[in-house]
């Protein structure tokens, strides 16, 4: 079983999908000879040819639009947006066409498209390269939004996304691309969609998070355990739809909830989770819900990055806050 990084897990899944299904096509900027700026598509054009692994002109709106056209003909398009800050021109196509083509044609035309894009900061990149814009996608009916937290989950979720007959936004935590290696069996098995994962069981506080923050949250849980505070850690994984049942079940057990996300607080997914817990499990709560999030500022240039991205200390403090009186 190969030990691979998250970006190598993505590469394995893409190669598997290309080999298994002749309708799978990769498009994006610099994904061909160059293998993608993060090397997610390394070697794939050499193996599968320049039509199935296509370098596109430098236009994200076009990438979204041509994906819609190709998908309408039954191709399964996996498009790469090079950095999440460059997503905006493609939003017109994603929101106005990709997300709703099935609905507006009553199922006559569909959009089996996966839009892959890096998510979040932490790699000292220039401006517009470190955004966490999941809410822009999660707000649109007709889309699924996924965010893996490990090489194995990246492999299995990406295969699930490619095989799903509807558009899936696939957010890849930039900071995790090469952070750690994991054994990944390239067996072509997809993970289930729409499900959150309980990564660690605990009794005192539920910590819900996704993407790169999963790792910091697990470290926070370790520190808290040293202080005899037992945390249940949930990797949300599916950012739309949200698996509220798994969260509610956990909160029913612990009575305390901390939501951790790198994205800005205002109208973030944390608000959606907290509101649902308030609606459905208010009387299970032993303490107010706490959100640990990015600030409502512009994502700063990287010199200030370590002050923006939330720390293990903030997560630990938030969890303790729920345990005070």
């Amino acid at each position: 079983m190969p030990r691979v990084t998250l970006v190598e897990g993505i590469n394995l899944a893409l190669a598997r999908a290309l080999a298994d299904d002749p309708d799978v096509v990769l498009i994006g900027e610099d994904i061909g000879v160059n293998g993608g700026v993060f090397r997610a598509t390394a070697g794939l054009q050499q193996r599968f040819g320049a039509l199935r692994v296509q370098d596109t002109p430098l236009a994200e709106g076009l990438i979204g639009g041509m994906a819609v056209g190709m998908a309408s003909q039954g191709l399964k398009v996996v498009a790469e947006i090079q950095f999440m800050g460059f997503l905006y021109p493609a939003l017109d196509q994603i929101a106005n066409h990709m997300a709703r083509m099935r609905n507006r044609t009553r199922g006559r035309l569909t959009c089996p498209v996966v839009m892959r894009m890096p998510h979040g900061g932490g790699i000292h990149a220039p401006e517009h390269h470190s955004e966490s814009l999941e809410v822009l996608l999660a707000h649109h009916a007709g889309l699924r939004v996924l965010c893996p937290s490990s090489p194995a989950r990246a492999y299995g979720l990406l295969l699930a996304a490619i095989r799903d007959p509807d558009p899936v936004m696939f957010l890849e935590p930039t900071r995790l691309y090469r952070l750690a290696k994991q054994d990944v069996l390239d067996d072509g098995r997809a993970l289930p969609l729409d499900e959150a994962v309980v990564l660690r069981e605990g009794d005192d506080v539920t910590l819900v998070t996704w993407g790169a923050m999963v790792h910091d949250t697990l470290r926070a849980a370790d520190e808290l355990m040293n202080e005899k505070i037992s945390c249940e850690v949930i990797d949300l994984s599916s950012l739309s739809p949200i698996d509220h049942d798994t969260i509610l079940e956990s909160v029913g057990h612990t009575g305390r909830l901390v939501i951790v996300h790198e994205a800005a607080r205002n109208a973030g997914l944390g608000a959606e989770i907290a509101a649902t817990v308030a609606e459905k499990a208010l009387y299970d709560l032993l303490a107010p819900v706490v959100r640990v999030t990015g600030y409502d500022t512009v994502m700063p240039y990287f010199a200030m990055e370590r002050s923006y991205i939330l720390s293990v200390a903030r997560i630990v403090d938030a969890a303790k806050q729920t345990l005070q009186g």
Partner: peptide, 23 residues
Amino acid sequence: FPWCVPIGSQTPHAAGVAMAFKM
């Protein structure tokens, strides 16, 4: 394709359809 109200956004669809034909 169905009618397209967001002006101009149908033109990349045609290019994508044509790409599928070519492939």
